[in-house]
Computed example of a mutant assay.
Amino acid sequence: MDRARRDRDEEGRARNARPRDGLGRPLPYGAAGVERQPEGVVRDPAETLREAQRLLDAGMPFHAHEVFEDAWKAGPEAERELWRGLAQLAVGLTHAARGNTAGGARLLERGADRVAGFTGRPYGLDVPGLVVWARTLAGRVGAAAEPVDAAAEAPRLLG
């Protein structure tokens, strides 16, 4: 089997074909995994937030991060830091749920810093609530040794 060929997309870019679990961790080839998020999907902001919330509620913050990443890459320049910050919040929760609590806390703080720069309620986002959620969770997990339950800790994106 030619793994190099299998793990590249049609343009020749590296794309890891290994299955992943619900927190995005690679599993052995041939293992049953969670369906991956398609890459490069262009959604409007409301669709992005609905899909990301669905994934967060299901305990799949890694997959929600991929949805936010699509928005950050495809969205207007003026909004990229918002979507990037939301992606970092989701990755921070991912790391905290995987047991990398120190890394999770750092990413939650970075994401909070990015989204805090957006005033008002862009697309109905509860920016102040997300910042408080992220900083509170970062404080808790930064001092903890145990992973968190991703679904139980999922934020509410819209207020």
Rank of each mutant, 00 (worst) to 15 (best):
M1C: 14
D2L: 10
A4M: 10
A4N: 12
A4T: 12
D7K: 07
D9N: 08
D9S: 04
E11S: 12
G12A: 02
R13E: 11
A14H: 12
A14D: 11
N16L: 15
A17N: 04
R18I: 08
R18A: 15
R20V: 13
R20M: 11
R20Y: 00
L23F: 01
L23P: 01
R25E: 08
R25Q: 13
P26I: 09
L27A: 11
Y29R: 15
Y29F: 08
A32D: 15
A32K: 13
E35K: 12
R36T: 12
P38D: 10
R43L: 15
D44E: 06
L49C: 06
R50C: 02
A52K: 04
Q53P: 00
R54K: 12
R54H: 13
A58L: 02
A58P: 01
G59R: 09
P61N: 11
F62M: 12
H63C: 00
H63V: 01
A64T: 02
H65Q: 02
H65C: 00
E66N: 03
F68S: 05
W72E: 13
W72K: 07
W72P: 01
W72Y: 06
W72I: 06
K73Q: 10
K73T: 09
A78K: 13
E79M: 11
R80A: 08
R80P: 04
E81V: 07
L82C: 05
W83V: 05
R84G: 15
R84V: 01
G85V: 01
Q88Y: 00
Q88I: 01
L89N: 08
L89T: 06
A90G: 07
G92V: 03
A96I: 01
R98D: 11
R98Y: 13
R98Q: 14
N100D: 15
T101E: 10
A102G: 13
G103D: 11
L107W: 12
E109K: 08
R110T: 05
G111L: 06
D113S: 12
R114Y: 10
R114I: 03
V115L: 03
G117T: 06
T119G: 15
T119M: 07
G120A: 05
R121N: 07
R121G: 14
P122C: 04
Y123N: 07
G124L: 10
G124E: 08
D126M: 04
W133D: 09
W133A: 05
R135D: 11
L137T: 05
G139I: 01
A143V: 14
A144Q: 05
E146P: 11
V148H: 09
V148L: 02
D149L: 00
D149M: 02
A151Q: 13
A152L: 13
A152M: 09
A152Y: 04
E153T: 04
E153H: 05
A154K: 04
P155E: 11
L158W: 04
L158E: 13
L158K: 03
